[in-house]
């Protein structure tokens, strides 16, 4: 087995840090199993939403509820944050000082907070129009799915802040690096779930 071999999903450290790379295989695979089980949860929430879609109970229908501009901006924010996390991962792999990693992780977290803020603003203005979960089966399905994703992003942001503290306190030791790699998978995974949300929920509703 050479240090250059790929061992897991996400960015592999390979020869840049053979020691951590050796340990990462199992650790990352375990996290990957968790992510896939999380994917099943989301898939079933998607199925619930799909089944409930026509159950509007005489209330608001999807194309009255959604705004394409807002969904588009949220998509751009989250997609950019996925890219900046990629830059953070590369900085961790190739830079021997931690500033670059901290910078890009910080930018990613700011984008994450912007995304959460924008979504909360959406939900608040929906609620102000009486579009609340108890209004209809369709809205219950919507509020089960989309805020579930927002909750994940929020947890990702908290995790990111913890990582910034860990990087400062422990430096770039193998454990910290593996944690950042797990967080990167989590973050890219949430962006993939968002593809499903903007296609199935927003664009299907507005088409």
């Amino acid at each position: 087995m050479s240090a250059d071999e790929l061992k897991h999903a996400g960015l592999n450290l390979q020869e840049a840090d053979p020691l951590t790379h050796e340990k990462a295989g199992e650790a990352i695979f375990g996290f990957w199993v968790f992510l896939m089980s999380d994917a099943v949860v989301f898939a079933l929430l998607f199925a619930t939403y799909g089944v409930m879609l026509r159950g509007t109970a005489g209330g608001p229908v999807p194309h009255e509820v959604y705004e394409i501009k807002s969904a588009f901006i949220e998509t751009l924010i989250l997609l950019s944050s996925s890219f900046t996390f990629g830059l953070a991962s590369l900085a961790m792999k190739y830079e021997h000082k931690r500033h670059q990693l901290e910078l890009w992780l910080g930018v990613t977290l700011l984008l994450g907070f912007a995304f959460i803020g924008w979504e909360i603003h959406d939900f608040v203005s929906m609620a102000a129009k009486g579009e609340v979960p108890s209004r209809s089966g369709y809205l219950s399905g919507f509020y089960a799915l989309v805020p579930m994703h927002m909750l994940h992003v929020t947890i990702g942001c908290v995790w990111g802040m913890v990582m910034l503290v860990q990087i400062r306190k422990f430096g770039l030791d193998p454990m910290v690096k593996i944690n950042v790699m797990r967080l990167s998978l989590f973050w890219h995974f949430l962006d993939i779930i968002w593809i499903g949300i903007f296609s199935v929920v927003y664009l299907q509703g507005l088409a």
Binding site: L6, A9, G10, L11, N12, S82, G86, L185, H188, F189, D191, I192, I195
Partner: peptide, 8 residues
């Protein structure tokens, strides 16, 4: 995303 971000 799978190919370029998750390297699968």
């Amino acid at each position: 995303h799978f190919r370029f971000f998750l390297h699968i």
